[in-house]
């Protein structure tokens, strides 16, 4: 797969279709993959990587990249194409300046799940028939692939590319996922239990802003949390929970626009399941206004930005909040 991608990227650079390539490169460790822009065949052949650890969603980077001179090639997994579409819909990505190659998605691996098995000093990770062969400085370890699958991939909603100029590999289908199971479980809690759950989770937050910085729905020119005029930037917290309102405000901000790409939870250094807040909104929208998947297309009107005469009454929304 990686070879095919490099080969095609080199071709497109050579024939002038694009002048840059958006992909991934390896960092200090094999599992340490970061998004990168390549401009020459040499760079691609040396650094370009696409393997079981390339989870990062490249769509958000295209907000800035698509505004630069010339066209850029981007490799997008199925889940990334939803974010891409949503950003095109919001006029954040200039579609004409991007050449999208759809590539097959996960399941991808989460290094933290491997490390949780006590495996450290990792040199390389090979997938042999869904058994991971892990070379470490202490010797070789094995574990089942399924036990190391990233949380973002285990609730996969779709293997279908909703935007691309060409595909490498086959296109898949929208999946009947179980991604709302945990939300349903939270809904069934009493409000006190739910409050305790979230206070427990959100109290771990160190306000590193990683979730915001990675979120493809968070592309405001001037974020409300950085804007002195908003009255909430750098605000001293009145109590221990107020700081956590950051996450609630953020969830409201991306409601109806979040495609459930799962990047927020993936990058959280404190492993807070932030995606559950967004999924609650998605589940509510689906139930109140009918099935809606943000980013599935670039033209439809989002339920929260639209009004139909048969929209549910506010009283229905109200009753759902009453225990």
């Amino acid at each position: 797969m990686q070879e095919a991608m490099i080969k095609r990227a080199v071709q497109l650079l050579a024939d002038g279709t694009v002048n840059r390539v958006m992909g991934w490169k390896r960092g200090e460790f094999v599992y340490d993959i970061t998004p990168a822009v390549f401009t020459t065949a040499e760079e691609l052949e040396k650094d370009f990587v696409c393997d079981d650890f390339t989870q990062a969603n490249l769509s958000k980077y295209l907000v800035k990249e698509s505004r630069k001179e010339g066209k850029i090639l981007a490799f997008l997994k199925p889940c990334d194409t939803y974010s891409f579409n949503q950003l095109v819909k919001e006029h954040r990505i200039i579609r004409e300046n991007v050449y999208v190659i759809g590539i097959p998605g996960g399941p991808k691996l989460d290094i933290e799940k491997i490390k949780a098995k006590g495996i450290t000093g990792i040199l390389s990770v090979e997938n042999e028939n869904y058994t991971l062969k892990i070379e470490t400085i202490y010797g070789t370890e094995t574990m089942p692939f399924s036990e190391a699958v990233s949380g973002k991939c285990s609730g996969c909603k779709s293997k279908k590319h909703v935007a691309y100029d060409e595909l490498i590999g086959d296109d898949g289908e929208v999946l009947d996922s179980n991604r709302f199971d945990m939300v349903a479980k939270l809904e069934n809690m009493t409000s006190q239990e739910r409050f305790d759950f979230w206070r427990g989770e959100l109290s771990k937050c160190i306000r590193c802003n990683a979730c915001r910085n990675v979120c493809p729905a968070c592309t405001c020119e001037n974020c409300v949390f950085d804007n002195p005029k908003s009255g909430i930037d750098q605000k001293a917290a009145a109590d221990s929970f107020e700081e956590k309102m950051f996450h609630i405000i953020r969830a409201f901000h991306v409601a109806g626009r979040c495609t459930d790409c799962g990047e927020c939870s993936r990058v959280c250094p404190q492993n807070i399941p932030l995606h559950l807040l967004n999924r609650k909104f998605i589940k509510d929208i689906n139930e109140l206004y009918g099935e809606y998947q943000a980013g599935a297309d670039t033209t439809s009107r989002a339920p929260l930005n639209n009004y139909n005469a048969d929209d549910c009454e506010p009283s229905v929304v109200h009753e759902r909040g009453v225990e």
């Binding site: 819909k89 919001e90 006029h91 954040r92 592309t219 405001c220 020119e221 001037n222 804007n227």
Partner: peptide
């Protein structure tokens, strides 16, 4: 205009 994203919402 300095804050507008141009998203059409």
């Amino acid at each position: 205009e300095l804050m507008c994203n141009g998203c059409s919402a």
